[in-house]
Design a protein around this nucleic acid. Structure first.
Lengths: 186, 186
DNA sequence: ATTACTGTTAGTACCTAGTCATAATATCGG
DNA sequence: CCGATATTATGACTAGGTACTAACAGTAAT
């Protein structure tokens, strides 16, 4: 029934992470030990008391409300561009681009970088994405720098241009997309 | 210096709404009355005590967490969700979402709505887009309301789930995407 | 002038979910 | 079996309250 200290502490940590609203009393019942033991465990694991946990959850809420829409106009910085040929852009992955849970970059930011690069490379006043086939080949985490390279492949029909975009972190491909772009054909 | 009861109570309500972390003691000093007066005021105004306020702020985040994605991280507003089955979200296209030139919605916003819906519908702690095939079937302009509908199709492999997302403006399809989602366990 | 009422302040007992410190007991490994 | 580690118990204290009673000042009505 009762588990050894180490095991209990690991479970305790997980339980509190998952359910930060739980009291020491409830934890004591859950693990079949006294409240004091739970408190000693929290001490050792540096887990604050219930009220402080709730407070921090509430506070983190407050801050994230302020951040509003992270999807701004910034979708990478273009560092090389030859219209209707190729283009390169850089996007530094910050905390604004990642899931709060696991620090992995959200897919639409990688897509946005690639897509906007595909739009930018088209030598036309109007360029829209008609369709695309994309692959997220590796996870990107906070702090990494994504380099997207677009290559114009050619035109099936006069109003459709194919653009291939490949994105890299340290020469490792993280994203690959084939975009079919609509253009007005002035 | 000291204001009449009514005025104080109005200000009290506003103050607490704006700063829910404030204690009765601090409020008493702020309004130059005794703690008891503040408590009587809270009673009359049905404002709960500090800890309950903090709790509700914290809970408002925790409860509304859809497995993989906190609700406020979803692009668009989720109006229907049944995990691992289907989900619907609404995104109103504002000037923030369009090209300044022609008021046409930028593709990555439609993608972001669809992609985050595909993430949200997955009943798992970790959900990432592996790859996707998308079509922009009609242009969307500023002021239009996009309704995205996600449908979970099934699983090829245990860790891969297919999600189809179709987005509409006035019953007209504007976007269609087949997403292959990676999920951690379950 | 007395009564009634409102608004404010004061004080008590009690509550929860802890803290800290110390002591006593239980359990396990060698 | 002994000693170290682990656990439980005990008492005193804290913040931020609730719930209740009592007192008092100022105003209005009778």
């Amino acid at each position: 029934m009762r588990k050894p200290k180490k095991e209990r502490q690991i479970l305790l940590k997980e339980t509190i992470e998952q359910k930060p609203f739980i009291t020491d009393e409830a934890l004591a019942k859950l693990f079949q030990v006294s409240i004091q033991t739970i408190r000693l465990d929290r001490m050792e694991l540096n887990i604050p008391e219930l009220r402080e946990r709730i407070k921090s959850v509430a506070a983190s809420n407050w801050n994230e409300t302020v951040k509003a829409l992270p999807l701004e106009e910034v979708i990478g910085e273009i560092i090389d561009l030859e219209l209707d040929k190729r283009a390169i852009s850089i996007l530094d992955i910050t905390k604004d681009h990642v899931f709060s849970r696991n620090k992995i970059a959200r897919g639409h930011h990688l897509f946005a970088q690639a897509n906007s690069l595909a739009v930018a490379v088209i030598n036309d006043d109007l360029a829209l994405t008609a369709n695309a086939e994309i692959k997220f080949t590796r996870q990107v985490v906070e702090g990494e720098r994504v380099i997207a390279k677009a290559r114009v492949l050619g035109q099936d029909k006069p109003s459709r241009t194919k653009v291939e975009v490949e994105s890299f972190v340290d020469n490792e491909m993280v994203f690959q997309g084939d975009f079919v772009m609509y253009r007005s054909n002035q």
